[in-house]
Write a protein that binds this DNA or RNA. Sequence first.
DNA 1: GCGTGGCGGTGCGGTAGCGAACATACAGGC
DNA 2: GCCTGTATGTTCGCTACCGCACCGCCACGC
Lengths: 240, 240
Amino acid sequence: MSKSPAAIPNIILAALPAREFQKLRPALSEVTLNFADVLYEFGEPIADVYFPSACLVSLLTRADGHVALEVGMVGREGIVGIPLALGMQRSPVKALVQGGGPALRMKKTKFLAALEGSVGLKRGIYAYIYALMGQISQTAVCNRFHLVEARLARWLLMTRDRVERAEFRMTHEFLSHMLGVRREGVSEAASAFQHQHLIEYNRGKIRILDHRGLEAAACSCYHRSPVDKDAIKPWRSGPH
Amino acid sequence: MSKSPAAIPNIILAALPAREFQKLRPALSEVTLNFADVLYEFGEPIADVYFPSACLVSLLTRADGHVALEVGMVGREGIVGIPLALGMQRSPVKALVQGGGPALRMKKTKFLAALEGSVGLKRGIYAYIYALMGQISQTAVCNRFHLVEARLARWLLMTRDRVERAEFRMTHEFLSHMLGVRREGVSEAASAFQHQHLIEYNRGKIRILDHRGLEAAACSCYHRSPVDKDAIKPWRSGPH
DNA sequence: GCGTGGCGGTGCGGTAGCGAACATACAGGC
DNA sequence: GCCTGTATGTTCGCTACCGCACCGCCACGC
């Protein structure tokens, strides 16, 4: 299951100068994250950070009376364990693996040392924190204003972009918690998409059939939370 | 209008060791932020950062078809201009002054230099970024699940805590943009509160009469976005 | 004093999503 | 083959909120 060391699908790591990456390499271990793994619980200490390669981790906030609400999504464009980079020990959110796949793991102490020793890593991670704050804000807007159908389409597309597969495990029930709506609402929206041949699903498996069609059904928020790191440049280097 | 230099109502600055603060002092200028000032526009470069003393700055995200949506609120517990501390040049959000009052301003270049020269400042700001991410997430949950009345109560209380006054300028119209609802919805909720003698208002001025009563009307989110910096300790040092 | 614009009160029909209840159907263990 | 648990389909009344329209009222400028 392990990728060749030469291929570094995680964007933050791939952006490092070769020499800096070589210094980090011994501290990284290749692991496979499995569907439904909980990397951190609400308010619990963070033992390791993860650089996803081709998997998806959801960041969830607690909401009384509800199971949870997804506020962010981390794939190969990011890192899980941001609080450590901000000098904090505990995760304010629950980190749940939604799409299994390979990731690189680093122990907390080694990560803190690596941050001090690698300017490139620090820059990459801070830039990602910036992007993630934007993503969380965008998700807040989306959850407030957009219809369930549009949000579902956005979620499916964002997931696909991060796991880099068109099919993934996901029940309507679970999705309803991510989107903060009822299970029935998800079923109705998903059913509509299936009739339009945009997706197909069955007992906990969903497959995207028509990527373009889904994009048309999604709200504009989708285009504002890209995986591609270059896409955040408009905020950095110009109003395009 | 300017406070005595000895009193540093901004919590991040007040937490600095005296020697570190003295080093920063020359780079800080005392300013008064006025109601409706726009500190940063969406995606625009950041020229200065601000340490609010007793004023309130709203962080707004764009939402097509709507004026804006508030995702965060900065008072004396924080700093406006976080992207600079993350190595980014532009603000992803609009920063709007909701409550006028004193603040300390620092030029971008001096701030970047200060960050390098003051470990305490860096720690304080990163801890604040952590807290702000929590606040944004909490606001996302709140906007999704809670009724307009509860959200209005929360907003009023959070504002009061930050401007440290019971009365402030604010029209229903403006509030509706902050909360992401219609103006009429705000009017109805505010009217209900006025009948209960929790607040009183008139033509763009709102005064809180019964703080406790408002707390009872607010959702639990209020207690999860405190001004008091110590309050974020549960995430840092233990599950209480 | 008079107009004008900003602020807030109120009522209307319409609807997305809620909560609950119930039906169907497939999968996997035994 | 049967049983049980999990996943999904469907319906129903309800309500918070929307979008719209219109009103009265006060403050301020001329």
